[in-house]
Write a protein that binds this DNA or RNA. Sequence first.
DNA 1: GCAAATGTCGCCGTTTGA
DNA 2: CGGATCAAACGGCGACAT
Length: 388
Amino acid sequence: MDTHPRRIAHLDMDAFYASVELLRYPELRGLPVVIGGRSSHQPELLPDGSRRFARLRDYVGRGVITTSTYEARALGVFSGMGVMKAAKLAPDAILLPVDFDAYRHYSRLFKAAVAAVAPQIEDRGIDEIYIDLSELPGATETLARRIKQAVKDATGLSCSIGVSPNKLLSKICSDLEKPDGLTLLDPADIPARIWPLPVRKINGIGPKAGEKLAALGITTIAELAQAEPALLQASFGRSYAEWLHTASHGIDERPVVTSSEPKSISRETTFERDLHPRHDRATLSEVFTALCTRLAGDLQRKGYLGRTIGIKLRFDDFRTVTRDLTLPDPTADAVAIRRAAGECLRRVPLERKLRLLGVRASALSRRDTPQAITEPAQGELQLAAPSR
DNA sequence: GCAAATGTCGCCGTTTGA
DNA sequence: CGGATCAAACGGCGACAT
């Protein structure tokens, strides 16, 4: 029996999208650069070979900042901020459009580089992973430095790593010394290094829970760790309250999960302007069908069928509603998805303008997996022998 | 005229089948 | 036969994450 604590690393790429863009446009190093927006603001190649970049102040329309360089963050521009708002803070910052293909490419590169050093990897999206170092020979710090170097060699990019006995603490640690950080946490140091941090640093405490805790006078992890369980339970319910307590004490037994299947696949789009359900009916219908077609394409390309089709609407007041419909048979067919999504849409009262429309497939199965042989249809039996 | 796109998970109320 | 019960599926929705 292994009584050693686990050695779990969390690796987070530094300002990932922005750093990939800087590989391509090295002349932007040191400048405030933000990635985001919707319309094309592709850099323009000038006759002398130099490039002209769009500035935030030139931007018009909707859209959010996806990432920014540390120079832009210093000006108060962060992920998730509206582009127009960011433009007021940093009008001269360079604005680049997102290029997901490029980021996916570098994502594969860095993950492959890590895997060559430490194969026990849990994917956590495009720019971060957990790594289980427990069974590897060598000192933790040596391994972590080797991983950082492998990432740098493979991509030219820096990352930050936190290592501790569990995912919860490592995730916090990887953020402590960004960029290019390496933070090893001994559990004995939890009171000194973790407790002073704001509760929002805990992965799983979001804006809502953060606000509720603040209302209880709890802002740091130390205060949370000392909070009366009954107090937490009254505000959050038993299950979440217990989790808050254990998390604040740095306890987390979740394993590193090295493989998983997707649970849902979706497509959604925010319109240039809010669309009126009746007045813009034709446009909406076109967009709706296009989303279904793209979703069907995604499913087919990835080899999945969906049995539950759902839609998502966001109104001009930002209220969001969803509707689902489960089909008798799984499908990846655009027409079938469009029909099911249309059924969902009929169940939503459309009393406001719409700003977003989305379509989702869930209850996924792999294409080519033989489906269970269907029982004789219930409806037919009832027709043959009606019960009343 | 502020607020993207995509995905996971948990909770809750309802329905359904045994 | 009616009621109680239980589990699983479903549908809606919110919270959270990158």
